[in-house]
Amino acid sequence: MIATYANLIIQGILLGGLYAIFALGLSLSVGVMRFVNIAHGDFIVLVSFLLLTVATALHINVLLALLLVIPLTFAGGYLLQRVLLQRVIGQSVLLPLLVTFGLSIIVQNGLLEGFGADTHTLSAGSLDTSSLHIGSFYVGVLPVATFVLAVALVLGFDWLLYRSRIGANIRAVADDVAAADLIGLSSVRIYAIAMGIVGVTVAIAACFMGLRMNFDATSGPSRLLVAFEVVVLGGLGSLRGTLLGGIILGIAQTLGGQIDGAWQVLAGHLVFLVIFLLRPQGLLPRY
C-alpha cells in the first residue's frame, strides 16, 4: 500500500518535470511582455505535429527532428512577436489576450483540418519503453530523462536570465520598458528575442509531451491551463518555483488519476485553487 503510493508520488514528481517545461515559456512571456499567451498550449501541440511530420518524412528519430525544429520555432516566436504581438502589447491586457485567443482557435482548427481529430504520440525508439530498477521501484528512463532535462532547463534559464548579456537586457526591459526605449535599448528587438526563446521552450515541451502522453488537435487548452497553474503556483518570475509548481501539480494529477480520468484533471485544478487561495503570491515568489 505504502509502496504503491510512494511509487505514485515518484511518477507525479517525474510528470511535474514535464509540466515545468510547459510553464517555462509562459513564465518568460508573462514576466517580460506582461501578457498571458492564450495560444501557448496550442503552439506546443502545433510543434508536436510538426515534429511528427518531420520525423516521419525524413525517417529520423524525433530527438534529431527536435534539433532541426528548434531554429524554426525560435524564428517563429521572433516573427510572431515582431509582426503581430508587438502591435498590440503595452496599452492594456485586453488586446494581446484577444489576439492570442484568436490564434489559439486558428491553430486548433487548422490542426483539425490538417490532421483530423485522431490521437497521436511521438516515439523515440527504444527509449520509450526502457526502465530503471531503483531499489524496489521501476521507473521509466524517459520520465527520468524528462525530469533531468527540466532541472537542466531551469538552471540553464537561470543562467541565461541572470548571468548572460541578453538576460540582462531582457530583465531591463521587464523592469522599465519606457526607460529602455528612452536610452536607446530597443524593446522591440528584446521582446522579439524573448519570444524566440519562448519558441525554443515550446519545441522542447512539444517533443517531450509527445513522447510521454497522447495529444490531438484540441489538446492545447489543457496544456495551457497546466502551464498557467504551474506559473501562478511557483510565483511570478521564479524559475525554481516553476519546478516546484510542476511537481505539486504532477503529484495531484497522478493521485487523482487513481480514481478516473476526470479526477486526474480535477484534482490538479482543485489543488491549484486551494494553494492559490492560501498563497496568492505563489510558493517561491521572486519579487
Partner: peptide
C-alpha cells in the same frame, strides 16, 4: 474571490480554470 485575487494578465486564464472545475 478567486478571480479578483489574480493579477490582470492572469485573470482570463483564471476564469477558465474555474469554468473547467465547474464542468468537471
Amino acid at each position: 474571490v478567486i478571480v479578483f485575487r489574480l493579477r490582470a494578465a492572469y485573470l482570463a486564464v483564471g476564469t477558465w480554470v474555474v469554468a473547467e472545475v465547474l464542468m468537471l
